[in-house]
Every structure is written in structure tokens, then in C-alpha cells.
Design a protein around this nucleic acid. Structure first.
Lengths: 120, 120
DNA sequence: ATATAATGCAATCATTTGGTTTCGCAAAAT
DNA sequence: ATTTTGCGAAACCAAATGATTGCATTATAT
């Protein structure tokens, strides 16, 4: 070991990943959809895309890192499956806005109700 | 049966920006939350962050490009406001998974109900 | 035991991203 | 009329991203 070797050449800080960054990529979103109902192996997944198996493997790693998917080893095959609970976190984030758009909808409701009453 | 919903309806022609790429950046998500309830000017928004006004301006442009926000000129000030309808597209995409996790929840319900019956 | 299949990892590369700095232009204030 | 304010656009730069290629490793098949 060399003590003064501060950082490896290809030092990539891939730790700041979060679900939002993960779903930003269209291929990753497609993968998510693909395995939503049924766990799949990397090879099987890669067959659905126009990129190399290794590229898909990288996407799977990124999705794994933020725990949007999990894996189950079966012999030499690895089945990747979607972690729905993690998907719910996106939903959670959306919730703050859902509150707003539902409120706006209710306000419209009120307006309509008032109009109706005035007609009487 | 749950249909595959790979991409939201609206597509950007000029750039490959989409809502998912837009919300991938934490600063942009913060901006979205910030102006959700009240339209704000770029300067006012920038005061909330540790970056330059110009950087915020860039974020606003990206958010505008994918129509997540809109602007209203008032003299020399520009008020940016959130487009909730566009936010709903994220919700729409999530919907396919919501169906699944609700189904799984129902299945769990059934299991619990069966256990309860067996106890009797 | 050896070959093959399924997979992950590292190096490399072009492109994209997010930031800064500098500038230009209107609207408002002086 | 001149200065200040609010803003976007362009040029530039370091870092991150997504893809490819070339391995290494382990499980299965022959």
C-alpha cells in the first residue's frame, strides 16, 4: 500500500444519489416499469433496450444504491425487483403539492356552489 | 391488468429536458416548493439559496422549458409560479405503481382476514 | 476438468450539467 | 438625464453522467 496515494484515478463520488436523480434517466424509468410486476435478471432486462448489458448493469447499480430495487441471487442468476416502498417516497414528496391542487379544486367547488346559490 | 406507462404524454422537442430531469436537481426541487404557494421573483428566490442569482435564473429556465413553472411580468419584475397541472404528470407516472402497491396491500388484507377467520 | 453463461467491475471517452463571471438591456428611481 | 435595479444571455470551466470495451469471477453444463 502506498500511503501518499490520496485518491484513485477514477474517483467518482456516486454517493450523492437519491431517488429523484435515479428516476431522471429514461432508461432507468423504463427498467423500473419493466420489473415492477415481475423480478428480472440483468440479461433479460438488457434484451429490452438498445444498450449493452454492462450499461444496464450500471443502471441497476444506481437503482440499487438508492434502494429503489433489490436483488435475489438464484444460482448464478440475479433477480432484480422493484422496492415499492421506496417508490412511495416520491409519492410522499408529491403529497405537499397534492394538498395544494386539491385545495384549489375545492376552492373552485366553492365558487361553483356560490354561483348555483345565487341563481336561486 | 396494469398497462405499462413508460412516458408521460407531453414531450419536449427542443431539448431532451423532461419533468423528471428537472426535479432531479435538489435546488430545483427546493425552488418548486418555495414558489408552490406564492409566485416569486428570481431575486427573491435566489436569496433562499447559496448560489448566484444567475445560477437560479438558469434553474428557472430549465423549469420553464418543461413547463413546470410559468412567469408573469410586472414592470421589470418577473414572478414565477408553479404549474400544478404539470406536477400532476409525475403523479400520473406514479399511478401505475400506486396500483401495484395498493393491490399488494389488499392481498395482505386478505391474508390477515384469512388468519382471523382461522382463529375462530 | 473444461467450456460456457451470467454477472459485476475498472478504465476510458464524449457529452451534459451546474456553477461562475461578464455583459447587455429595459424599467424604475434619482 | 443619469444612475440604479432586476433580469436574461453568453462564454467558460470543473465535475458528473452514460456509454463502451475489456477484463475477472462464480455457477452451471458438457
Amino acid at each position: 500500500m502506498i500511503a501518499l496515494y490520496l485518491q484513485p484515478n477514477s474517483f467518482k463520488l456516486e454517493s450523492r444519489r437519491d431517488i429523484f436523480q435515479a428516476i431522471a434517466d429514461p432508461t432507468r424509468r423504463a427498467i423500473i416499469t419493466l420489473i415492477a410486476l415481475q423480478a428480472m435478471t440483468p440479461n433479460a432486462i438488457a434484451e429490452h433496450f438498445d444498450t449493452s448489458r454492462q450499461a444496464v448493469s450500471k443502471h441497476l447499480r444506481i437503482l440499487s444504491e438508492c434502494e429503489l430495487i433489490s436483488q435475489k441471487q438464484k444460482g448464478r442468476e440475479i433477480y432484480y425487483q422493484l422496492e415499492l416502498n421506496k417508490m412511495k417516497e416520491i409519492d410522499k414528496w408529491l403529497n405537499q403539492f397534492r394538498k395544494i391542487w386539491e385545495t384549489k379544486f375545492n376552492q373552485l367547488d366553492t365558487v361553483l356552489a356560490n354561483l348555483k346559490n345565487k341563481k336561486k
